[in-house]
Amino acid sequence: MSINPMAYEAQFFGFTPQTFMLRIYVAFQDHLAHIMLVVEDTILNKLECIRPNKLTPSLIRRSTEQFFSLMKKIFNNLFGKMEDTLLKTVLSIPPNVLLPEDKGQEEFRYTPEQFQELQDEIDQLERQLKAESAAEQALLAELEEQKIVQAHLEGILQWFDGLENVGREEGVGNLKESFSALTKTTVKLQSVVREVEEKMNKLK
Protein backbone atom coordinates (compact mmCIF):
# COMPACT_ATOMS: atom_id res chain seq x y z
CA MET A 1 0.00 0.00 0.00
CA SER A 2 1.10 3.58 -0.65
CA ILE A 3 2.60 5.47 2.32
CA ASN A 4 1.74 8.90 0.83
CA PRO A 5 -0.88 10.38 3.21
CA MET A 6 -2.79 12.06 0.31
CA ALA A 7 -4.44 14.44 2.80
CA TYR A 8 -5.78 16.75 0.07
CA GLU A 9 -7.48 13.84 -1.68
CA ALA A 10 -8.95 12.74 1.65
CA GLN A 11 -10.33 16.29 2.09
CA PHE A 12 -12.03 16.04 -1.32
CA PHE A 13 -13.33 12.45 -1.23
CA GLY A 14 -14.10 12.26 2.48
CA PHE A 15 -11.89 9.19 2.84
CA THR A 16 -8.25 8.36 2.11
CA PRO A 17 -7.60 6.73 -1.28
CA GLN A 18 -5.46 4.12 0.53
CA THR A 19 -8.47 3.12 2.64
CA PHE A 20 -10.55 2.78 -0.53
CA MET A 21 -7.92 0.56 -2.15
CA LEU A 22 -7.56 -1.52 1.02
CA ARG A 23 -11.30 -2.20 1.05
CA ILE A 24 -11.17 -3.30 -2.59
CA TYR A 25 -8.20 -5.55 -1.78
CA VAL A 26 -9.96 -7.17 1.20
CA ALA A 27 -13.16 -7.63 -0.84
CA PHE A 28 -11.22 -9.37 -3.66
CA GLN A 29 -9.42 -11.59 -1.15
CA ASP A 30 -12.69 -12.57 0.53
CA HIS A 31 -14.35 -13.40 -2.80
CA LEU A 32 -11.30 -15.37 -3.93
CA ALA A 33 -11.34 -17.42 -0.72
CA HIS A 34 -15.10 -17.98 -1.14
CA ILE A 35 -14.61 -19.13 -4.76
CA MET A 36 -11.88 -21.57 -3.67
CA LEU A 37 -14.27 -23.12 -1.12
CA VAL A 38 -16.99 -23.43 -3.76
CA VAL A 39 -14.52 -25.08 -6.18
CA GLU A 40 -13.36 -27.46 -3.46
CA ASP A 41 -16.96 -28.34 -2.61
CA THR A 42 -17.75 -29.00 -6.26
CA ILE A 43 -14.70 -31.24 -6.70
CA LEU A 44 -15.59 -33.24 -3.57
CA ASN A 45 -19.17 -33.70 -4.80
CA LYS A 46 -17.93 -34.95 -8.18
CA LEU A 47 -15.49 -37.32 -6.46
CA GLU A 48 -18.32 -38.99 -4.57
CA CYS A 49 -19.66 -40.17 -7.91
CA ILE A 50 -16.29 -41.23 -9.34
CA ARG A 51 -14.61 -42.40 -6.08
CA PRO A 52 -11.02 -42.68 -7.38
CA ASN A 53 -8.61 -44.36 -4.98
CA LYS A 54 -5.84 -41.73 -5.09
CA LEU A 55 -7.95 -38.53 -4.78
CA THR A 56 -8.84 -38.15 -1.09
CA PRO A 57 -10.52 -35.09 0.50
CA SER A 58 -7.28 -34.15 2.33
CA LEU A 59 -5.32 -34.29 -0.95
CA ILE A 60 -7.92 -32.09 -2.63
CA ARG A 61 -7.77 -29.64 0.32
CA ARG A 62 -3.98 -29.36 -0.03
CA SER A 63 -4.30 -28.87 -3.77
CA THR A 64 -6.96 -26.20 -3.26
CA GLU A 65 -4.78 -24.36 -0.72
CA GLN A 66 -1.80 -24.47 -3.09
CA PHE A 67 -3.95 -23.13 -5.93
CA PHE A 68 -5.36 -20.44 -3.60
CA SER A 69 -1.82 -19.42 -2.58
CA LEU A 70 -0.82 -19.17 -6.25
CA MET A 71 -3.88 -17.10 -7.07
CA LYS A 72 -3.12 -14.75 -4.13
CA LYS A 73 0.41 -14.15 -5.42
CA ILE A 74 -0.87 -13.40 -8.90
CA PHE A 75 -3.63 -11.17 -7.51
CA ASN A 76 -1.21 -9.28 -5.22
CA ASN A 77 1.08 -8.60 -8.17
CA LEU A 78 -1.79 -7.35 -10.35
CA PHE A 79 -3.34 -5.38 -7.48
CA GLY A 80 -0.05 -3.61 -6.77
CA LYS A 81 0.06 -2.35 -10.36
CA MET A 82 -3.62 -1.41 -10.29
CA GLU A 83 -3.19 0.44 -6.98
CA ASP A 84 -0.22 2.38 -8.28
CA THR A 85 -2.13 3.42 -11.40
CA LEU A 86 -5.33 4.37 -9.59
CA LEU A 87 -3.58 6.34 -6.83
CA LYS A 88 -1.56 8.31 -9.36
CA THR A 89 -4.40 9.04 -11.79
CA VAL A 90 -8.02 8.44 -10.78
CA LEU A 91 -7.72 9.03 -7.03
CA SER A 92 -5.18 11.87 -7.01
CA ILE A 93 -5.65 15.62 -7.31
CA PRO A 94 -3.06 17.37 -9.54
CA PRO A 95 -0.79 19.86 -7.74
CA ASN A 96 -2.19 22.79 -9.78
CA VAL A 97 -5.83 22.09 -8.80
CA LEU A 98 -7.44 23.73 -5.77
CA LEU A 99 -10.65 22.63 -4.09
CA PRO A 100 -13.50 25.22 -4.06
CA GLU A 101 -13.02 25.91 -0.34
CA ASP A 102 -9.34 26.69 -0.97
CA LYS A 103 -9.85 29.09 -3.87
CA GLY A 104 -8.98 31.98 -1.57
CA GLN A 105 -5.38 30.82 -1.67
CA GLU A 106 -5.19 31.92 -5.31
CA GLU A 107 -6.31 35.45 -4.47
CA PHE A 108 -4.14 35.86 -1.38
CA ARG A 109 -0.69 34.42 -1.90
CA TYR A 110 1.97 35.21 0.67
CA THR A 111 5.68 34.58 0.73
CA PRO A 112 7.15 33.12 3.93
CA GLU A 113 8.53 36.57 4.77
CA GLN A 114 5.11 38.22 4.33
CA PHE A 115 3.48 35.50 6.40
CA GLN A 116 6.06 36.07 9.16
CA GLU A 117 5.37 39.82 9.06
CA LEU A 118 1.65 39.15 9.47
CA GLN A 119 2.37 36.75 12.32
CA ASP A 120 4.58 39.37 14.03
CA GLU A 121 1.84 41.99 13.61
CA ILE A 122 -0.72 39.62 15.12
CA ASP A 123 1.61 38.95 18.07
CA GLN A 124 2.10 42.71 18.58
CA LEU A 125 -1.65 43.35 18.48
CA GLU A 126 -2.19 40.56 21.00
CA ARG A 127 0.38 42.14 23.33
CA GLN A 128 -1.29 45.56 22.95
CA LEU A 129 -4.67 44.02 23.66
CA LYS A 130 -3.33 42.38 26.82
CA ALA A 131 -1.73 45.66 27.95
CA GLU A 132 -4.94 47.63 27.30
CA SER A 133 -6.95 44.99 29.13
CA ALA A 134 -4.59 45.21 32.12
CA ALA A 135 -4.81 49.03 32.07
CA GLU A 136 -8.60 48.83 31.94
CA GLN A 137 -8.61 46.50 34.95
CA ALA A 138 -6.32 48.90 36.85
CA LEU A 139 -8.62 51.85 36.03
CA LEU A 140 -11.66 49.90 37.18
CA ALA A 141 -9.89 49.02 40.44
CA GLU A 142 -8.94 52.70 40.94
CA LEU A 143 -12.52 53.74 40.22
CA GLU A 144 -13.76 51.35 42.89
CA GLU A 145 -11.26 52.83 45.37
CA GLN A 146 -12.44 56.34 44.48
CA LYS A 147 -16.04 55.31 45.10
CA ILE A 148 -15.05 54.01 48.54
CA VAL A 149 -13.14 57.24 49.35
CA GLN A 150 -16.06 59.34 48.09
CA ALA A 151 -18.42 57.39 50.33
CA HIS A 152 -16.11 58.07 53.32
CA LEU A 153 -15.92 61.79 52.45
CA GLU A 154 -19.68 62.00 52.18
CA GLY A 155 -19.91 60.34 55.61
CA ILE A 156 -17.47 62.89 57.07
CA LEU A 157 -19.41 65.78 55.50
CA GLN A 158 -22.61 64.43 56.98
CA TRP A 159 -20.85 64.17 60.36
CA PHE A 160 -19.72 67.81 60.10
CA ASP A 161 -23.24 68.85 59.17
CA GLY A 162 -24.48 67.00 62.23
CA LEU A 163 -21.90 68.78 64.42
CA GLU A 164 -22.88 72.13 62.99
CA ASN A 165 -26.53 71.44 63.75
CA VAL A 166 -25.64 70.41 67.29
CA GLY A 167 -23.52 73.58 67.64
CA ARG A 168 -26.43 75.75 66.59
CA GLU A 169 -28.70 74.02 69.06
CA GLU A 170 -26.11 74.58 71.83
CA GLY A 171 -25.71 78.24 70.91
CA VAL A 172 -22.37 77.99 69.12
CA GLY A 173 -22.26 80.41 66.23
CA ASN A 174 -20.18 79.28 63.30
CA LEU A 175 -18.72 75.77 63.59
CA LYS A 176 -15.88 76.59 61.20
CA GLU A 177 -14.86 79.62 63.29
CA SER A 178 -15.03 77.47 66.42
CA PHE A 179 -12.73 74.88 64.87
CA SER A 180 -10.38 77.64 63.74
CA ALA A 181 -10.22 79.08 67.29
CA LEU A 182 -9.76 75.60 68.71
CA THR A 183 -6.90 74.97 66.30
CA LYS A 184 -5.18 78.23 67.33
CA THR A 185 -5.64 77.37 71.02
CA THR A 186 -4.13 73.93 70.42
CA VAL A 187 -1.11 75.48 68.75
CA LYS A 188 -0.63 77.85 71.73
CA LEU A 189 -0.98 74.97 74.18
CA GLN A 190 1.64 72.99 72.27
CA SER A 191 3.97 76.01 72.44
CA VAL A 192 3.44 76.34 76.22
CA VAL A 193 4.08 72.60 76.70
CA ARG A 194 7.36 72.90 74.81
CA GLU A 195 8.44 75.90 76.96
CA VAL A 196 7.61 74.00 80.15
CA GLU A 197 9.57 70.97 78.95
CA GLU A 198 12.56 73.14 78.12
CA LYS A 199 12.53 74.79 81.59
CA MET A 200 12.16 71.40 83.24
CA ASN A 201 15.18 70.16 81.33
CA LYS A 202 17.23 73.17 82.45
CA LEU A 203 16.28 72.61 86.09
CA LYS A 204 17.53 69.05 85.82
Rank of each mutant, 00 (worst) to 15 (best):
Met1Ser: 09
Met6His: 03
Gln11Asn: 08
Gln11Phe: 02
Phe12Tyr: 04
Phe13Met: 01
Phe15Asp: 04
Phe15Leu: 08
Thr16Trp: 08
Thr16Leu: 01
Pro17Met: 03
Gln18Tyr: 02
Gln18Trp: 02
Val26Ile: 07
Leu32Lys: 08
Leu32Trp: 06
Ala33Asp: 03
His34Ala: 14
Met36Asp: 12
Val38His: 04
Val39Gln: 12
Ile43Met: 02
Arg51Ser: 14
Arg51Val: 07
Pro52Gly: 01
Ser58Phe: 05
Ile60Ser: 03
Glu65Tyr: 11
Asn76Thr: 11
Asn76Val: 12
Leu78Ile: 08
Val90Lys: 05
Ile93Asn: 01
Pro94Ser: 07
Pro94Asp: 00
Leu98Asn: 02
Pro100Met: 01
Phe108Tyr: 02
Phe108Glu: 00
Tyr110Phe: 13
Thr111Ala: 02
Glu113Thr: 03
Glu113Ile: 05
Gln114Cys: 05
Gln114His: 07
Phe115Arg: 06
Glu117His: 12
Glu117Pro: 01
Glu117Asn: 01
Leu118Val: 02
Leu125Cys: 10
Gln128Lys: 08
Leu129Cys: 12
Leu129Asn: 14
Lys130Cys: 14
Ala131Cys: 06
Ala134Arg: 15
Glu136Arg: 14
Gln137Gly: 12
Gln137Cys: 09
Ala138Gln: 10
Ala138Asp: 13
Lys147Ser: 01
Val149Leu: 10
His152Phe: 06
Gln158Tyr: 10
Asp161Asn: 13
Asp161Pro: 01
Asp161Tyr: 10
Asp161Val: 15
Glu164Met: 10
Asn165Met: 07
Val166Lys: 13
Glu170Val: 12
Val172Ala: 01
Gly173Pro: 02
Phe179Leu: 13
Ser180Ala: 15
Thr183Tyr: 13
Lys184Trp: 13
Lys184Asp: 06
Thr186Asp: 10
Lys188Met: 14
Lys188Asp: 09
Ser191Thr: 13
Ser191Leu: 11
Val192Trp: 04
Val193Gly: 09
Val196Cys: 05
Glu198Gly: 03
Leu203Asp: 08
Leu203Gly: 14
Lys204Pro: 06
